[in-house]
Nucleic acid binder design. Structure first.
Length: 607
RNA sequence: GCUGGCAUAGCUCAGUUGGCUAGAGCAGUUGAUUUGUAAUCAACAGGCCCGGGGUUCAAAUCCUCGUGCCAGCACCA
């Protein structure tokens, strides 16, 4: 006797989602999956919604040909090709058609055909033939709803009637098969839920996310700007952004000094010969900026390693000197594709918090652990979650295989020996060595690669670096490249979204907004402002000829963490009336208590 | 780089099928007001309508080539 699954839309069998069509064909039983917002139900539903979209597109554009339409983290999409041009305006039309089709309550049927039959069936559909090429099986399944059918692995809903709460969100181009050598198809993204409320909540969440976009907040808070006449990807730091950045830089400077790093600085551009030695010329040249003067070609640095190598080479080194750690807020230039540029997240000129550790093979592990600990201190301070990923040898790489293997093994060993969780990203390494990437999750749940720890045996070999060992023999040091923020630009962009511009006191562009009630209180405001500078706190005096209420409003909207208001009482008693934006409290403190409070808040952060 | 879209005042945006002197709010300046916890009132100023080139009696509006921006792809700190 076969079980009846009344409310089920699919089954869970051995941790696999099996749709009812497949289950009944193969006689599989399992746990019922009901139509709700569980990950399993959403996967099935979104997949079927993608098919419904394809059906709608096919009915509107009869020449449409379809590639693949998977379920992804943010919903689903379908890649396809039509003769007509489709734009954002057409999404509504397609949505409407989807609703019409869903009302027809087509059953979704499944049948199997052999690979040969499939190739015949889709003989004049080059996209389907491409899909078929990627399938190793001898049999494929077809899903059919009404007069629309599609090659698909499933799983699907029993009927299109269950698709009600969905939205098409984006339209864009995508390379066929994710390969930029292929032609570009049209891709439409969408989202679907089991109920109206969830869909609404999702759309609200997206709108909220948009509000904390660092480009929007950066503009509002006057942190940075870009100008057409300056060039794409070249950020301009405005005073408020400059102050924020300076705070970050100075906190980080101290943290490096405590860990034994020496500040150094290499030139902005170096002779191309050096980039040939390092391998950047051959491997990275298309992304570099070059200039020729007096018939000598120079390359603007895309990385700081070569400069630091030259610092290392300045003296003969002994094993007693190691590890040697150099750091630099290194300004680098990389010619990114125009389409890759994105606010502060992807720019063409940026400053890395870069460092290079020259050490012995034996020191690798402890050095990596120290860096990981450094990373942890910083990320925890900002309240970021992060994960580590070991990236191995990429296609384009220098150095021989054995060196690569050894380096990769060293990274894995360091992680294992210290019980640190990690994932592997095959082929994601830098061209000169494998790396551990630190990926942090931002406020909207997007992952960003910031910090990176790269093990490098190649550059020391190419530059013939050495140190004297105990027996006075020449030994090649290992070089560890590392950045923790990655770049100030990207990191500040992420911080902005993370805090939605409500920066905590220790990093905020302005610590205190001072609001004198009347002109007679301006003098005291200035005295307080100066005292704040003495304890390394920045303030802004809101003394414009506006009403008190207006100035409080303006100060509140500027996202300064603390407002103080001073009038006759305060001037007379040498106190301040505090309005704390973070705790949303109002209270009074003596001038001394107030300054101590600010100082404490600034000093409590130490990487 | 690729596909699609967009570009009007410092910012956010109006501007009809091509047609009079291109508008508003905020911000700015000036004046009045001197305020006790989220918008006082008034006046003024502010524009090569992204830049070349073209079509037209006439272009912010149409075409074209750039530049920049947005979404996604591909690439990446």
């Amino acid at each position: 006797m076969r079980k009846l699954y009344l409310d089920a839309i699919a089954l869970k069998h051995n941790d696999e989602i099996i749709d009812l069509q497949t289950a009944s064909a193969l006689g599989i039983e399992g746990e019922p999956i009901e139509l709700d917002n569980s990950p399993e139900a959403l996967e099935v539903m979104r997949h079927s919604t993608a098919h419904l979209m394809a059906q709608a597109i096919k009915s509107l554009y009869t020449n449409a040909k379809f590639f693949v339409g998977p379920v992804v983290k943010e919903g689903f999409y379908y890649d396809f090709k039509v003769d007509e041009e489709i734009g954002t305006a057409d999404l509504k039309k397609i949505e409407k058609q989807m609703i019409n089709l869903a009302k027809k309550k087509f059953e979704i049927e499944r049948y199997e055909i052999s690979m040969e039959e499939a190739k015949l069936k889709f003989g004049n559909d080059e996209l389907k033939l491409d899909v078929l090429k990627r399938i190793p099986d001898s049999k494929v399944s077809i899903y059919k709803q009404g007069d629309f059918e599609d090659l698909c692995r499933g799983p699907h809903l029993p009927s299109v009637r269950n698709i009600r709460f969905f939205k098409l969100t984006k339209i864009a181009g995508a390379y066929r098969g994710g390969d930029s050598k292929n032609e570009m198809l049209t891709r439409i993204y969408g989202i679907a839920f089991a109920d109206k409320e969830s869909l609404k909540a999702h759309m609200t969440m997206l709108a909220e996310a948009e509000k904390r976009d660092h480009r929007k907040i950066g503009n509002e808070m006057k942190l940075f700007t870009f100008r057409e006449e300056v060039g794409a990807g070249f950020p301009i730091w405005l005073p408020a952004g400059g102050r924020l950045r300076a705070r970050l830089e100075s906190l980080l400077f101290k943290a490096h000094r405590k860990r034994g790093y020496e500040p150094v600085r290499g030139p902005e551009m170096l002779k191309s010969e050096l980039w040939k030695t390092s391998g950047h010329y051959q491997n990275y040249g298309e992304n570099m900026y070059f200039t020729s003067i007096d018939e000598v070609e120079f390359g603007v640095k895309p990385m700081n390693c070569v400069g630091h190598i030259k610092v290392y080479e300045d003296e003969l080194r002994s094993y007693r000197d190691l590890p040697i750690k150099y750091f630099e807020y290194g300004v680098v230039h990389r010619h990114e594709f125009t389409g890759a540029l994105h606010g502060l997240f992807r720019v063409r000129e940026f400053t890395q918090d870069d460092a290079h550790i020259f050490c012995t093979v034996e020191q690798i592990e402890e050095q990596i652990i120290e860096v990981v600990d450094f990373v942890d201190k910083i990320m925890t301070t900002f309240g970021f979650e992060y994960k580590m990923m070991i990236s191995t040898k990429p296609e384009k790489a220098v150095g021989d295989a054995i060196v690569w293997e050894k380096s990769e093994a060293a990274l894995v060993a360091a992680m294992k020996a210290n019980n640190l969780p990690y994932e592997i990203d095959e082929g994601g390494g830098a061209f000169y060595g494998p790396k551990i990437d630190i990926k942090i999750t931002d406020a909207i749940g997007r992952e960003w690669q910031c910090g990176t720890i790269q093990l490098d045996n190649n550059l020391p070999a190419r530059f013939e670096l050495e140190y004297n060992g105990e027996e006075n023999e020449k030994i090649q040091p290992v070089m560890i490249h590392r950045a923790i923020l990655g770049s100030f630009e990207r990191f500040i962009g992420i911080l902005t979204e993370h805090y939605a511009g409500e920066f905590p006191m220790f990093i905020a562009p302005t610590q205190v907004a001072i609001i004198p009630i009347a002109d007679t209180h301006k003098e005291y405001a200035k005295i307080l402002s100066d005292k704040l500078i003495d304890i390394n706190a920045d303030s802004m005096i809101y003394d414009k000829n506006d009403s008190l209420n207006k100035r409080i409003r303006t100060a509140e909207k500027s996202r300064v963490p603390m407002l103080i208001i001073i009038g006759d009482e305060e001037v007379e008693g040498r106190t301040v009336a505090i309005r704390d934006r973070v705790s949303r409290e109002q209270y009074n403190l003596s001038e001394e208590e107030f300054l101590t409070l600010i100082q404490t808040k600034l000093n409590e952060v130490n990487f």
